[in-house]
Design a protein around this nucleic acid. Structure first.
Lengths: 218, 218
DNA sequence: AGACCAAATATGGTCAGACCATACACCTAC
DNA sequence: GTAGGTGTATGGTCTGACCATATTTGGTCT
């Protein structure tokens, strides 16, 4: 096993053992190297891997207290990874939409009260001045719905899709020219969830995404 | 921008420009460093990132022709990433099963003929001598079903879950003591797909996984 | 006493050069 | 022609150095 891999394992183990959470800092590179009895190069390669994985993030300067800070970022990295592994090209719009429909139907059936993020996103969409702004809050609305369902795995996938969803949706909204129908859908979804009517919520989500399919594929 | 990040970009660009594909090799670390006018350390950090992303893989020795070889490996890396980002602990069995049920129902509804991998896995399960062996082919059966549905994103997620699924299932099979019921389920799923009966296939998958829920949560 | 600015310091980022174990290529001996 | 030894380039690791940056410190002026 290569040295930096053992360093990786020891850092992971240390994070778990010390109960470090987001915002906490690891020792500096030099200090880590001395503690683990390896060279700084090996520590750096391990940190680079952790950074790629979205676990830590390094900043220069940063006074004499510490180094890499624990981050939580299941978004960008996952998206990068999916993009790279799925043939280096963009995922097809149909793959993204199918996956999204599946996750959102599942979520809608399980969420029994709308989280604050959903309500806020709804208001933000009303106030939006541009398609970009509208769509940003649109997707936030749907991500919030998924988060509320409490499956972290599905939340991670949904967040990974965010960028792809936004670019698809912006184009569709531009073509559509207005957002009235979409907002009506959103209010219907929101109301169904608030009233705890799972079946109606699933139906509302399905209808909403059926509209999305139409807009994207026509 | 840090040096290794520009190296990263240049390597990616080079891969695209030269049309390199799986199996092709990059220049050696020293040669790359000289070509890009950076130190070998920076090249190594970039390669480490690419390795983490599952794009390349390095081997020592390997004669005087070249270094990192282009790989395609959507599995392990994604699983690592999900594990690390989902709180550094193992995902809950319920999250895994829920996700799996969702993906497999979706797939069963769309696949209209069983791929060779499914048929082979079925035979391999009959011949299996241990729970581990049985479960390995069991999961292969389900992964093959998902692959056949043609959504690369869902395939990637399913593969990422493979390890977790295997360990869950091995335990369950041990407790059960036999695999007759499971194989009957598999044959029902296989037959439904071969006959192109989507609704029956979904039903068969649902029944099969309901059994899995029982075994895991009781 | 308080506000402000400059030097000291520690950090991550990068570099250069060295050594090791390994795996392939080549060449020799049979 | 084959078997075995040797050479060589590779990735992996280490050491030690320098740089730019950001925080800390300590002094200076008000």
């Amino acid at each position: 096993m290569r040295t930096f891999e053992t360093v990786l394992a020891q850092i992971e183990q240390r994070i778990a053992a010390d109960g470090l959470t987001v915002g906490d800092r690891l020792p500096g590179e030099r200090q880590l190297a001395e503690q683990l009895q390896v060279s700084r190069s090996s520590v750096r390669e391990a940190l680079r891997v952790l950074e790629t994985l979205g676990v830590v993030s390094s900043q220069v300067g940063r006074g004499p207290d510490a180094g890499a800070v624990l981050t939580s970022r299941p978004d960008g990295t996952l998206a990068d990874l999916l993009r790279l592994n799925l043939g280096l090209t963009t995922m097809s719009a149909r793959e993204v939409l199918d996956t999204r429909l599946m996750i959102e139907r599942w979520s809608a059936a399980r969420v029994t009260s709308a989280p604050a993020e959903m309500t806020e996103a709804l208001a933000a969409m009303d106030a939006a001045a541009s398609p970009e702004e509208f769509v940003t809050h649109d997707i936030a609305f749907h991500v919030a719905l998924t988060d509320a369902a409490g499956n972290r795995l599905l939340s991670a996938v949904m967040r990974a899709l965010r960028d792809a969803l936004v670019s698809n949706a912006v184009e569709a909204v531009r073509r559509l020219g207005h957002t009235d129908d979409l907002q009506a859908d959103h209010r219907r979804i929101h109301a169904a969830i608030e009233s705890g009517d799972g079946a109606e919520a699933v139906e509302a989500v399905t209808a909403h995404l059926a509209r999305a399919y139409e807009n994207v594929f026509h």
